[in-house]
Write a protein that binds this DNA or RNA. Structure first.
Lengths: 222, 222, 222, 222
DNA sequence: CATGAATGAGTATTCATTCAT
DNA sequence: GATGAATGAATACTCATTCAT
């Protein structure tokens, strides 16, 4: 977390972290249910069992809370995704594992991701940069995987398209959250995942003789 | 336009259409610059050279304006895209033309699309439905193209993936608007279009012997 | 009617009277249902099938409408009450007939009277005077009856109390409208009338040997 | 006071009572001078040396203020009237004392009572019920007195007319406020009181041999 | 460090009235 | 005479933020 950017009235770093987590936990629920603008600071304070006065000891304004929330969500996502990436795996193996995990996370955190997605714009320019940067960090995971795959020969992709492909992968994940209102009517998350994976692979191999099934899914959708 | 849904205090239908266009024209600019929430009704009225009183003769509340704006944008997009689709073209031809046009439109209307994207959630539930429906109408254009291509044999895609692929296409278009902050640093719209097109085609043909170049681009990016 | 006080943009006196009656008819219903303040001029115009523009040709402002309404109600009440007063009757006979008629009218026009009662204060000072004067005119009917009764010996009352008694009688009538929420639970209008009449008479006779029953009620409560 | 019904944003009960009194004190004056509808919340806040924000911490909407005012007035009236009623007095004695005190209070609080009278209808239904209930509580005082008088033989009244008579007494009091524009021209409050008392007594005794003068007035009109 | 009462600028919306057609 | 679109002052209420205790 880069919370350090947000100044607090209180010194005790340990306390700051604890209280901010409290704030984030309370705020997320409210933001998801009502949106950032329609949630009042009073509500947030009440939700996290804090007086408004106390809350303002740990933040400077309402937007700070949104920032903390976005940051928290991104960190959690990133951690969850990195967990399945192993050094020893080939590029393609990592890709498949990473992709499946990405979609698993997107499904689990659907409303959270949607939140970031819809409210980021409410952040002041400077803060927005940081949030977008977080996003780009996650995108970078897939860039690295693709590059590794190109080098070890398991992935076939022109270097100039690496960035683009990484973005595409991220967006395939995100669209499950922001187009769920339509996609959810036609596909389960498993179906969605495997079909998108098939389409994705078809872009990354020279010929489709390589079977996906050779790479076992160690992602189980709860 | 389904504006008819919004009741007006004024009877003259001609006038209603005219004034509402005035309102939309003024509001879009402000919404794009400041966002829906931070734009005041007074500002909107001033921008479109109307008194607030007059404005409220043609709408019922601020959200109506947002709805009118979203509706207007979607209609414009749909019209522009349909323009390049010709009956006599093969599925694949239509797809390529449609895709290129989609991206051209997305680039031209970048901030407009972004607006819809970020503010749709501010609409009341009922109104949101309509906006999402509009979106789905555009997606349906590509569904039809894909189906046509499957039938005439120019496109290779499993039927169950048609809907998914149509969504993917739409999202490839939209992501140019909402990830422009990153994509715009690495690609021009032409580069973006052609690379995405290449990736797309690779998913829709049995073998890559068919060259894209055979389908000339009649889309010029102004 | 002293409508003449209210200037109109239109000349034709016949038309003025007709249109103003139209306005009054529409307005009364609305005022009764929603009160003066919560009724809009637009609603009134719509209710009486007139454009607002036209309506304003016959009045100068919203308060004028209230005035017209009050005036109309008072005139109607006065006419109805005077109808049962006959020259040849004794004072006491007139009193009983007048009283019973007063209560009949109050019951029939309950919501109308209540309206005057609650909204008179919304009139500008000058207009209020006129309305109160109308009220006093009706009160004066009973003053005259009481004086006649004193002179012909059928009513026993000190001259200094005549005015007071006339007011009391009016108020007995009015309270049926503004305390109906309570009185209506315990008494029918007939019970209310006869009990109040009994009490009233007991104040106006030297000894109670005179029976009320000798004066027949020619008022039938529909 | 049943203020507890009105929720406040502030917790300290002591403070709530104090601030609400402040609000009532400021509001009454304005309501009396301009009426409820023509008084703005800003004016009220200014009058009671509070920011609007602060004021709204203690009420929920403008109507709440009106309710508080009505409640306050009724409570004050009731207390003042009850003060002169003594256990050991006979029914008739209580009645005379109570009646004189009622009129004294009505005179002192003339504009306050008039206010309740004219603005109660501006309250939302539920609140209006409470106010009317308060009114009925005061009326009940006189009901009890009348019943006592009937039992101890000092008052002669048919049981079925008790409720009616109690209402009549209340209305005799109230009419001094809402017909003061006319009554005030002819009677002082003392004259009004004694004449009405005489008329009242004439309804409540079998023969008029009993002299009122035997019951001394301990009400002095300041 | 914690509290929560105080603040007041800011906003959507209404509605009586006018006046050009 | 009739119409109804245009006007904009006026108003109730909210809510992020502060600061004395």
């Amino acid at each position: 977390m880069k919370n350090h950017i947000i100044p607090a009235m209180v010194k005790d770093e340990r306390l700051i972290a604890k209280r901010r987590q409290q704030i984030v936990d309370g705020a997320v629920q409210l933001f998801i249910k009502k949106g950032f603008h329609k949630t009042t600071t009073r509500e947030i304070a009440r939700k996290c069992n804090m007086s408004i006065g106390t809350m303002y000891e740990y933040i400077q304004n309402k937007e700070d809370i949104l920032y903390l929330v976005c940051d928290y969500i991104h960190c959690k996502m990133e951690k969850k995704i990195r967990r399945v990436i192993a050094e020893q795996d080939s590029g393609m193996e990592s890709l498949v594992k990473g992709f499946r995990q990405l979609l698993k996370v997107m499904d689990e955190m659907r409303s959270y991701v949607l939140l970031i997605y819809q409210e980021t714009k409410s952040l002041p320019k400077a803060r927005m940069k940081f949030v977008l940067q977080n996003e780009e960090n996650i995108t970078a995971i897939f860039e690295h995987i693709l590059e590794k795959g190109i080098q070890d020969g398991t992935i076939n992709l022109e270097p100039q398209s690496v960035k683009l492909m990484a973005h595409n992968i991220m967006v395939i994940g995100q669209m499950w959250t922001f187009r769920y209102w339509s996609l959810g009517r036609f596909y389960t998350i498993q179906e969605y995942t495997e079909q998108q994976l098939n389409l994705l692979i078809s872009q990354l191999i020279r010929n489709r003789s390589t079977s996906l099934n050779s790479i076992e899914s160690d992602v189980d959708f709860a």
